[in-house]
């Protein structure tokens, strides 16, 4: 009696598993159907460039000569190419802007995270550089930072500098001037994310701490900063990737000059591809830079394993 019942139950279970399997496989079909159009485009314009640049990197593919397999020549050329080495160095140097962007955007977020008359105006005002095109930004700052520009005028009347500096065409200042523009254009974006982070902090937690006698700095130190950590990680990662891959600012303002003072790796890859039409070499450089960025991100994620931060 008991046995038959057990058998029956097992049968029911089996049937359940079967139908579960059936359901799963039909679900998988539908899933792929949903994703198919998007995946086709992704394959064509995101994955294909990565895959195709691998064989391309081992050829001398260009518009001028016949395409030939040339082995590792592009790679050996890259490591003896002073311009490429300089461009890598400049891209790495550009990372210096990241902590400044994060620090100032956090300060701005704290500043606008309160209920005051006109606060919405200030929030949108800070965001406007983010929505304007890099072409417009480049025109404005190109003028402001020129020899006779407003920046020199202000700095000289305050007494910070004695001589006019043409910030973007001076070998020593050009890269820093570009970083400054990146900072200015990016602040609003990160401020918004941090603002969201600040507003997600439960207010009763702050109040409880205050009742226990915590002063404002203790609240910031022990509540705000720890709860903001995932946001800091997310923002730093995004702006780090942005800094290493920086292109638009450099391309429209200096295109790498004066000399190679502001030549970043993305700009150099572009120049090799679209100005020298040396697609093979350009692809090889792209692969090298991708590999470097990949190593950096693996290191960062390994260090941050415990944080358990979702990429989005």
């Amino acid at each position: 009696m008991l046995n038959t019942q057990l058998l029956k139950e097992q049968e029911i279970k089996k049937a359940g598993i079967k139908s579960e399997r059936k359901r799963k496989s039909s679900e998988a079909k539908i899933a792929w159907l949903f994703m198919a159009p998007g995946l086709v485009l992704l394959c064509l314009f995101v994955f294909w460039p990565i895959i195709y640049s691998v064989p391309l990197a081992f050829t001398n593919y260009s518009v001028i000569s016949e395409t030939k397999f040339i082995g590792l020549e592009n790679f050996t050329r890259a490591f003896t190419d002073t311009n490429f080495i300089v461009s890598l160095k400049n891209s790495m140097l550009y990372v210096i802007v990241v902590p400044f962007i994060q620090l100032f955007s956090i300060l701005m977020a704290i500043l606008v995270n309160r209920k005051m008359a006109g606060i919405k105006f200030f929030r949108s005002a800070y965001y406007i550089p983010v929505v304007t095109s890099m072409v417009a930004v480049a025109i404005i700052w190109g003028w402001l930072l020129s020899q006779n520009g407003v920046v020199n005028y202000i700095l000289m009347s305050v007494g910070i500098i004695d001589e006019k500096i043409s910030w973007l065409s001076n070998f020593d200042t050009a890269l820093w001037a570009l970083m400054f523009i990146t900072l200015w254009k990016g602040l609003g974006y990160y401020m918004m994310i941090y603002l969201a982070g600040l507003q997600a902090i439960p207010q009763d937690l702050v109040e409880a701490a205050q009742i226990d006698g915590a002063n404002r700095w203790q609240v910031i130190r022990h509540i705000t900063i720890p709860l903001l950590k995932p946001y800091v990680f997310f923002c730093s990662l995004i702006s780090l990737m942005g800094a290493i891959r920086v292109f638009d600012e450099v391309f429209v303002l200096t295109s790498g000059g004066p000399g190679n003072a502001t030549l970043t790796s993305s700009v150099y890859i572009y120049q090799q591809g679209f100005q020298q039409f040396d697609f093979g070499y350009s692809s090889a450089l792209g692969l090298i830079v991708s590999a470097i960025i990949m190593v950096i991100s693996i290191v960062i994620f390994a260090f941050n394993k415990k944080g358990g931060v979702n990429p989005y």
Binding site: S53, L56, M241, F247, G273, F274, G286, I293
Partner: peptide, 13 residues
């Protein structure tokens, strides 16, 4: 895919 330098994809695209 988010780590690929944008300029690298431009050529193949």
């Amino acid at each position: 895919t988010m780590i690929i330098p944008a300029a690298a994809g431009l050529v193949v695209n």
